[in-house]
Design a binder for these strands. Structure first.
Lengths: 233, 233
DNA sequence: CAAGGAATTATTGTCGACAAATAAAATACA
DNA sequence: TGTATTTTATTTGTCGACAATAATTCCTTG
């Protein structure tokens, strides 16, 4: 039996940071790395078979996105989940759901709709398969596709950031529940698609708001009951 | 006559990046660095009397904020101003004006209001003094103070980013006009403060929207006329 | 003389090492 | 025994150097 890969790291020149960044980002958002836990540069450097320089660059980028916090001259740690101000997050999320969906109804073109429906199919499949992780991912992609159809890059990037942050929260949600409820979301998605397709701006926005508040209510109900989540803070 | 400072660079340990970041950011936003122009790392390293490492970190952070673009293995350049999609920027800006002002009316406390009024005084002074740069800066600070009073960190950071980006556009605006119009903005600010103080959510949002659209209209009127601005693209 | 290819140059991405700053441990002292 | 102080150790921030990639120049060839 051989050792894995070993030092045979012939990566292409600029790909080091991207690799570290992507992996770390996923691990943070999928709660593989505990919120609040410390991050060691040298350890990461060894793990990824590269020097500290590209690791640091990846960390700087993650810090810029708010996914890690850097204490000067001291450790850097995975950003904690801010349960106290959760409602501000939901406010922002609901607003972005509304705005992007409305804009999609206004500005979408044919290929946009095809992509949105494709993502919806994938989401439905994930729900059918009761694959929580896939649900979270495809749901985010679905709404991001809608946002793209709205053709406002500023909203897209802000929304994307919120959805990322939300991955950590939803992860907790799906972990706790037994994956029963999301069927309802599939139908709500379908309704939103119809509204977008018919260019019914008001309806699209209304459905998006209801959909968002629906999810928010579910998650909040869980958070109130589940003091056990406090463990993770 | 002596040479300036020379290599006597006793900065404190983590301050190098911050210095480079702050200076470059200001120079980009104040149009000292032309949008689209190239950035040379070595040159910056010499200028700031430090190695390329902290310079690179500053650049990575600026790139994360969208203020510079990095072409892999090639030069990095100051982010161009996207005149084509300017309307999407204005849409986002108007929405954030509305949302943050409404939230401020809802959640502000006494010290918030004091800070807002303080910023408003500074803005009025800048208008009186016809100091365009000060107007831009204090106006941004005024609206950011309002956003802070709204107590939603997500909105604050998004709004901050938009206002930063806007500094470059407003810079063009104030450069071209002869600094005559802004008096009107002072009164509009006063009205917004009153609405916030009286906790009149609807009025606050309405005034903020009008105020924002007022500014947008001014800038757009300029941009339509001023093909000369295309030079800067 | 134009076009394609080879050599040169410039600039970035990565590395290993060192030094400053902080945290932890060990020691001294009341 | 508990607190203050020195010592040690760990970890970050910075540096100079090297290597890979792309841009540029120069040369060859049709």
């Amino acid at each position: 039996m051989e050792l894995e890969a070993a030092t045979g790291s012939d990566r292409r020149r600029g790909s080091g940071v991207k690799l570290a960044y992507d992996v770390l980002r996923d691990e943070i958002l999928d709660l593989v790395l505990q919120p609040g836990s410390a991050i060691d540069e040298v350890q990461l450097a060894e793990r990824f078979n590269m020097s500290r320089t590209p690791i640091r660059e990846a960390l700087v980028r993650l810090a810029a996105e708010g996914l890690i916090h850097t204490l000067p001259n001291r450790s850097t740690l995975v950003a904690p989940i801010d349960f106290l101000n959760m409602h501000t997050y939901f406010d922002a999320l609901v607003l972005m759901y509304r705005v992007t969906t409305k804009l999609a109804a206004q500005h979408h073109r044919a290929p946009d709709l095809a992509l949105i429906k494709e993502k919806q199919r994938q989401f439905a499949d994930a729900v059918k398969a009761q694959d929580a992780l896939a649900m979270i991912a495809t749901n985010a992609e679905f709404h991001l596709a809608i946002a793209e159809a709205g053709r406002n890059a500023h909203f897209v990037s802000f929304f994307k950031r919120l959805l990322d942050e939300g991955r950590r929260i939803l992860r907790l949600y799906y972990q706790s529940y037994e994956d029963r409820l999301p069927h309802r979301f599939v139908q709500e998605h379908e309704d939103m698609i119809s509204a977008i397709e018919n260019r019914n701006l008001e309806l699209a926005e209304e459905l998006a708001r209801d959909h968002a508040e629906q999810i928010v209510a579910q998650v909040q109900k869980l958070l109130v009951h589940g003091e056990r989540l406090q463990m993770i803070i």
